[in-house]
């Protein structure tokens, strides 16, 4: 069987979901028999070099760069998976949703108790920096997502079972304990 190509990325996430992928332990040796990684922090390939079968997205979209990366994943991947609570519903970063963006920036850079060094009260505004979005968006509100794996992080069992089922085309029968939102 030809190896499937996988790409992964962490948008507005904490890399916890990527850590959970590593929790498959020694099965990672089986995984590399089944798949080849392309653009991913796992192998540090920065750009897509070939068409990808499965794209795995961790984290929601909190800034313009996240949106751009997510759209490039949709363009280059046949199947996209939202991995974890942040990709599915915005997660922890989405706690800022509902608070005006100006208020968030003022709290973080001007009024917060730990901003003593910012004596000139500067808000980050360099052209190099991606623009913050008005709120944190779940991935499926930006592009079409094909599958969702919930959890914070999703358990290694869930990731492994889902990936193997997807790669080998076998039926996915998830036990009750595997799907958890926390």
């Amino acid at each position: 069987m030809e190896k499937k190509i996988i790409a992964t990325t962490s948008l507005a996430g904490c890399f916890g979901c990527h850590m959970s992928v590593l929790d498959i332990d020694e099965r990672i040796l089986e995984l590399i028999e089944l798949v080849e990684f392309n653009k991913s922090p796992v192998d540090d390939i920065k750009t897509f070099t070939k068409p990808v079968d499965i794209g795995i997205i961790e984290g929601g979209c909190c800034n313009s760069e996240n949106v751009e990366v997510l759209r490039s994943f949709r363009k280059n991947c046949k199947i996209l998976i939202s991995l974890g609570e942040c990709a599915i519903m915005g997660g922890l970063p989405a706690l800022r949703n509902g608070i005006p963006i100006e208020e968030c920036l003022n709290e973080a850079y001007i009024n917060g108790p730990t901003v003593g060094l910012n004596t000139q009260h500067i808000l980050p505004n360099d052209d190099e920096l991606p623009m913050l979005l008005d709120k944190v968006y779940p991935c499926h509100e930006i592009v079409k997502i094909d599958y969702y794996l919930p959890g914070c992080p999703p358990s290694a069992e869930l990731i492994w079972d889902a990936l193997v089922a997807l790669i080998t085309g076998s039926k996915l029968d998830l036990p009750y304990e595997v799907i958890k939102f926390d």
Binding site: S82, I88, M89, G90, A94, N97, G98, I99, K135, P138, H140, E141, I145, Y147, Y148, L149, P150, Y176, I179, K180, F181
Partner: peptide, 19 residues
């Protein structure tokens, strides 16, 4: 109940109300 009915993602857009 979400586990029992296997909700992977809501079909509706998130409201994110300020509470």
């Amino acid at each position: 109940l979400a586990y029992r009915y296997q909700m992977m993602v809501p079909r509706f857009p998130y409201d994110f109300p300020m509470k």
